[in-house]
């Protein structure tokens, strides 16, 4: 009799495990509420196609760095044809798949702290095309001298997140993980 209970308990536990794993990708409010994962940063991108396609040319910016409306504008076929001066055309199938993944985790849907701050800093209908035009991002980089960014051959622009943010690919952007090339750690 005792054994049966143990087996039942184990089955229930496995079931719970599978359930929470299944929800990891598309997280509900309750998953968020009961999750022990820290949500201080930006959700890392797990979409392999996205990481592969975008990192051919640049750091694969996380979905949670821009609101849905921005991603929609960026992923218009005509917009991709002139993607900040480069041709980044995608076939429709790929384009829709990537856009769908971006929308699902865009800043306005994210439970992550920095995404929320990004949205809070934007006006209601504001949807910038560049992450560096977001007021929160601007403010965060405001007091770094220009010669460490634009005047720094190894950085060039704020657009290259991973030039200084050592854990940018994991969606981690806190001060402790910043190393400015030719300068060192960034301390206030």
């Amino acid at each position: 009799m005792m054994k049966k209970w143990i087996v039942l308990l184990m089955v229930a536990m496995i079931g719970l495990g599978i359930n929470s794993a299944a929800f990891a990708e598309d997280e509900s409010f309750f998953d968020w509420l009961f999750s022990l994962e820290p949500r201080n940063e930006i959700k890392p991108m797990h979409n392999e196609l996205y990481n592969e396609e975008c990192s051919d040319c640049h750091f694969p910016y996380q979905a949670g760095l821009l609101p849905e409306a921005s991603w929609r504008k960026l992923f218009e076929p005509a917009a991709l044809e002139d993607h900040f001066g480069d041709n980044a055309e995608l076939d429709d199938e790929t384009r829709i798949e990537l856009l769908t993944a971006l929308i699902a985790d865009s800043a306005d849907k994210s439970h992550y702290k920095r995404s929320k701050k990004i949205i809070a800093s934007l006006g209601e209908n504001e949807a910038p095309l560049r992450i560096i035009d977001i007021p929160y991002i601007k403010r965060k980089h405001h007091d770094i001298p220009e010669d460490l960014i634009a005047g720094n051959e190894k950085v060039k622009s704020l657009s290259y997140c991973d030039a200084c943010h050592q854990k940018a690919d994991e969606g981690i952007y806190d001060d402790d993980t910043v190393v400015i090339p030719g300068h060192g750690n960034w301390t206030w």
Binding site: E81, D86, N87, E89, L90, D91
Partner: peptide
């Protein structure tokens, strides 16, 4: 993909 992008 790259022929299309880069030729343009």
């Amino acid at each position: 993909k790259w022929f299309k992008r880069n030729c343009k």
